[in-house]
Amino acid sequence: MAHGKTAKSSGKTFLEEVRHMLGGETLASCYQCGTCASSCPVARVSERFNPREVIRQSLLGEKEEILFGDALWLCCSCYNCQERCPQKVEIADVFYALRNLAIREGKMPNIYSEFSAGLMSEGKIVPMSKFLEKKRADYGLPPLKPANMDTLRKILSATGFDKLKKKEEPQ
């Protein structure tokens, strides 16, 4: 799944490619009413983001603009738009599908690289503080049970997650 072919190599249009992704299935139902934009807490405070615009670009196949742009990473995953969409477009999930595609193309914002590294080293995306781990007993908390890394690594290898990373910039 994580090594899906890109639109160029498989001859699919970008819209078809997104629709075949987990989360991207409902994209084509959008009729651009803008309910998403008017429900969006990010669009209210920033001109850098408008969900309707990202969906429009996806429908038009503007692949490069979306996958290598900034807007894709500005959805705060609040699901307000998805809850209210009259066409039942699963907008927040479409954003995940688009991000998944961008990451396969090697575009991974630094914060996501950090989450990924945390997951692969301790099975948690927020690293455990050694200080707090020691203090647990003082607060009457039981010892923490570690994640089963052996099992997790097998899952991450089966999906190809362990191979996903940011492409180095050319020198």
Binding site: S77, M108, I125
Partner: peptide
């Protein structure tokens, strides 16, 4: 408290790969 639980795979990981996130939650 069960042994071996990992991260739940929330939106930051769903953003990286949905299939992995679903699998981790299912695990």
């Amino acid at each position: 408290d069960l042994e071996g639980m990992t991260c739940c795979a929330p939106p930051p990981l769903q953003s990286i790969d949905l299939e992995t996130s679903l699998s981790m939650a299912a695990y």
